[in-house]
Amino acid sequence: MKPPINIVKYSGDVVSFDVNKLRSSLRRSHASEELIQQIVTQVENQLYDGISTQKIYQMAFKILKAQSRVSASKYTLKKALMELGPSGFPFEKLVGKLLAHEGFEAEVGVIVKGNCVQHEVDVIAKKDNTHFMIECKYHSDQGRFCNVKIPLYIHSRFLDIEKQWLQLKDHEAKIHKGGLYTNTRFTTDAIQYGKCVGLLLTSWDYPRGNGLKDRIDKSGLHPLTALTTLTKVEKTKLLDEGIVLCKELHGSPGLLDKIGVPEARHRSILEDSEELCSTH
C-alpha cells in the first residue's frame, strides 16, 4: 500500500490527498464518470509530496478543458467568483440577481437610514413579509475566511437599521433579518455567532447543500468570469460594462463587438454562455 501523499491547501494547512474530494469537485462540472476517472488517474500519476491544491486544480482543469469547455467552466466556478473584483461590486450584483431569481425583490447598493446613522447596504431583499439587509464580503484569495468580527459588525449595523424599520408604518408585522454572503468560507466562530443572533449566512459551501456553488448550479446564473473562451482583459471589460452573468452576455451579444472581441470567436463564446445558462 502506497504511503499517503501530503498536499498543501490554500490556507497553508497540510493534509493527506483525498481522491474522493477530487472526484466530488469534478462531478460538479457535470462531466461524464468516464472522463472524471480519466482525469483522476492522470492527476494521481503526477502527484508528489507537498504538491499544492492549486497545482492539482490546474492539472484537472487543463485535462477537463481539452475535453469539454463548458464542464471546465462549471469546474472553475470557485475561481470565477474570485475574479469578480477588485471592488467586489460585481459579486454584490451576482448576489442580488441570485436572490431576484429566487423570488425576492432585490436592490443593490442602497443607502438606508438607521436609528443612529445612515448605512450603505450591499443588498436589500424583500419577499412576502420578510425584509433582509444583506452585506457581501468578497475575497480575491481563497485562503481568507470570514472570521467572527465580520458577522459581529454586520449584526450591529442590522440592529441600527431594524430599529428604524420598526418605526415605519406597516413594519410592526414584518420579519426583519440581517444576512452575510461571502465567496469564501466562514470560520466556526462566525457560524456559531451567526446562528446565535439569527443572521442569514451564505458562503461558497454553507449552508450545506444550499451554498453559493449549489444555488448557482441550480439556477444557471454562472458568472461570465467562468467562461474559458474569454480572456482576462475581456472579462474585466464586460464587468466594467455592468455585465456579471453568462446569461446577460448571451442576451446582449453586441457587447462582444463593443469590447473588441474578434467576430471569429463570437460563436464559441455565445454557445458556451448559453449552455452554462442551462439548468439541466
Score class of each variant (00 low, 15 high):
192 Q>P: 01
187 T>L: 02
219 S>D: 06
241 E>K: 15
193 Y>R: 04
211 G>N: 04
245 L>P: 05
223 P>W: 04
223 P>Y: 03
221 L>H: 13
219 S>M: 08
237 K>C: 01
249 L>W: 08
250 H>T: 11
254 G>A: 10
196 C>V: 00
235 K>P: 00
240 D>Q: 10
229 T>R: 11
217 D>Y: 02
240 D>F: 02
248 E>R: 10
194 G>C: 09
239 L>T: 08
249 L>H: 14
252 S>L: 09
188 T>P: 03
205 D>I: 01
205 D>S: 14
238 L>Y: 01
217 D>L: 07
211 G>A: 04
233 V>I: 10
259 I>F: 04
255 L>D: 09
221 L>Q: 09
212 L>Y: 07
188 T>Q: 11
200 L>R: 01
194 G>Y: 13
196 C>K: 14
224 L>R: 04
250 H>A: 15
196 C>G: 08
251 G>C: 13
186 F>I: 03
225 T>C: 06
204 W>S: 05
237 K>G: 00
225 T>W: 00
233 V>Q: 10
242 G>C: 03
203 S>I: 03
254 G>V: 08
221 L>F: 15
248 E>K: 07
215 R>T: 02
255 L>V: 07
233 V>R: 08
225 T>G: 03
186 F>A: 04
189 D>T: 01
206 Y>E: 10
182 T>V: 11
256 L>K: 11
214 D>I: 05
187 T>Q: 02
190 A>K: 01
263 E>F: 15
237 K>N: 00
200 L>H: 02
256 L>E: 09
215 R>N: 03
240 D>I: 01
201 L>C: 03
192 Q>I: 05
202 T>Q: 14
245 L>G: 00
209 G>H: 01
236 T>N: 11
216 I>H: 05
251 G>A: 15
187 T>S: 12
182 T>D: 06
262 P>V: 14
217 D>E: 09
252 S>V: 08
227 L>A: 12
196 C>T: 08
249 L>N: 10
196 C>Y: 12
198 G>T: 13
250 H>W: 14
223 P>R: 08
257 D>L: 12
193 Y>A: 04
181 Y>S: 09
220 G>M: 12
183 N>G: 05
184 T>E: 13
251 G>L: 13
227 L>Q: 12
263 E>M: 15
257 D>E: 15
195 K>A: 13
181 Y>E: 06
185 R>A: 14
226 A>L: 00
211 G>M: 00
263 E>K: 15
248 E>T: 09
226 A>Y: 03
242 G>K: 10
258 K>R: 15
257 D>T: 11
200 L>A: 00
195 K>V: 07
201 L>H: 03
240 D>N: 15
191 I>S: 03
191 I>K: 09
256 L>M: 10
226 A>V: 06
194 G>T: 12
212 L>N: 07
256 L>V: 07
191 I>H: 01
228 T>P: 05
258 K>M: 14
231 T>G: 04
200 L>V: 05
183 N>E: 06
227 L>E: 08
220 G>Y: 11
197 V>T: 11
230 L>P: 11
206 Y>G: 04
182 T>M: 05
223 P>I: 07
187 T>E: 02
244 V>K: 06
193 Y>E: 02
199 L>R: 13
211 G>D: 03
215 R>Y: 02
234 E>P: 07
243 I>A: 08
185 R>F: 12
202 T>S: 06
227 L>G: 11
